[in-house]
Design a protein around this nucleic acid. Sequence first.
DNA 1: TTGTAAGCGTTATCAG
DNA 2: CTGATAACGCTTACAA
Lengths: 346, 346
Amino acid sequence: MSTSLEDVARSAGVSPSTVSRALRGLPGVNEDNRRRIAEIAASLGYVISPAASRLASGRMHTIGVVVPYVNRWFFGQVILGVESVLRARGFDLLLYNIGDNAGRERFFVEMPLRRRVDGVIVLSLPLSKSEVDRLTELNVPVAVVGVAATPFACVRIDDVSGAITAVRHLTQLGHRDIGLISSGTEIPMNFTTPVERRNGYLTALNEAHIDYDASLEAIGGFTIASGERAMARLLRGVRRPTAVFAESDEMAFGALRAIRRAGLRVPVDISVVGFDNHDMADLLDLTTIEQPVVQQGETVAQMLLDLLAAGGEPSGQLEVLPTRLLVRGSTAPRAHADALPAHYST
Amino acid sequence: MSTSLEDVARSAGVSPSTVSRALRGLPGVNEDNRRRIAEIAASLGYVISPAASRLASGRMHTIGVVVPYVNRWFFGQVILGVESVLRARGFDLLLYNIGDNAGRERFFVEMPLRRRVDGVIVLSLPLSKSEVDRLTELNVPVAVVGVAATPFACVRIDDVSGAITAVRHLTQLGHRDIGLISSGTEIPMNFTTPVERRNGYLTALNEAHIDYDASLEAIGGFTIASGERAMARLLRGVRRPTAVFAESDEMAFGALRAIRRAGLRVPVDISVVGFDNHDMADLLDLTTIEQPVVQQGETVAQMLLDLLAAGGEPSGQLEVLPTRLLVRGSTAPRAHADALPAHYST
DNA sequence: TTGTAAGCGTTATCAG
DNA sequence: CTGATAACGCTTACAA
């Protein structure tokens, strides 16, 4: 088999405990000895056995990362941030993809993280009371991204103010018929993001003394396709908006297409604002609210590790990261009606 | 602390080994006993200690997944596939994001997977000889996605024939000035994907008796921005292509934008074909070569697990998944010159 | 079919 | 500063 602590100890003429201390950088080891031991360990190609170390110490040096969909842009970005911090601090990253509701239920029933992680990071999963309980039962610190109202440490953005900024941008351009592509029942309850972005929309309307008109709201589901359908619905409505705020860039992308398919032009006929600053937003020239996604991953990992170092007190710590308006070509001052376009292609 | 095997054994009035066997479904356990033990274990809330199990058995029940960039579309998809298979079979997924060359070097020097995984999956990392050696030294089965010429099990697509199909589509539409947005030096050597897609381009040209013209090739780096720059270069060139094949959808997206910015229209003035069928390809109405990405993840995980079950013989097994042409709105028959567009917007 | 006992390779406590 | 020694909680011959 491979070389063990004991092999190194024998080779160095010291006891295993000294080697253990030396290699882990614990205090109380003669510096010369430490160097020598390190050298011998290296020359012997010694690698610690994580399993043994974990069993003996009770620390797993592993963080579980629970995500709804690894394959969506937002989560990929966050994971990138999380991974870099974890790796730098020598922690392993155990990935759990939840997927649909069935997968989610299975996850919370089986709780596969039990006894294998020192901490958990949950991404954008609106947690029910019982899910919070299940996580709490793990008896390890938990930190979440983008989920409010849990007892856990949390990093997020201010969705309300982001949405206000987005819609205010439209009102300042003179728009008064402002559609909303929101995300309703398709998304599980307790996910505050859509609620807050919608509240921001309402607040900004109110600010500009514009009455809310339910016929200007269409519900999507945070996907391109649903955004397209929602926009199509708005275009068929009695009152056609001159501007639209989509609660996510992906829905905005769909909206852009629906608008184009209807033979209308952006921003001449309709202005569109998204939210997120998705990788593709720049390409599609979409005005949007930028949020720091990778950084949210870094921050949440940092918070969790700090919590761990501090002994893992429950801590409902909250860190709110800034957003900012990115004006691109999809928004323009409100045009005075008329002048319909002739041709519009990709 | 938490309840252990021994607690369960005591409670059931049997020995720890019987409990172990019963819970793991090993043969040679009285079925009544097994049921009873399972019940007691459940009622006691017993959860196995992975650390102890791993230490004792030497099996980690964990697969390391090494990826260049978790946050890119392709990798997110593959990971999704890998995760589902691993999870279903009860394996843990340890994620390693490599990132740039510095990260890559660090990874192969430190080899953080040593002693903690039963197998490794490597995604689209062109492996140098010494990197192959490092992985081999791990003494666990390795399987790769999209990397040819390694001793490892491999799942991939036929990039050559995919590219031939793409370019043939253009020649059949009557195009003869066909640009290539390839990916050259920015990508590390030994990554066969770009080479093979380029070969497919050359083959299809040859088939149609079209001479290769270096001035019609522009080099990008698999990103949107690089694709845009490459296309801009082609448009400035002496011989303007009437069609372009981009080696990836992301570069094609950039190309679409460059074309639009130049005041030209797709497909009227220039046809564009991509490769991958990226999530956004549909939105952008891009004709492309579809490849089964999630399925490559599922397949590679399956292969690795099978290998593991079979005892982990080296196996240079190869599985090639099919691609297919998806014709959308970005390609059209070659127009007879003239007729330049006036206005073109988002 | 079941039990006994020897590891697995560390960490941690306690003396020295 | 260093060394015994007892856990840690399971797996796995081997015996019964």
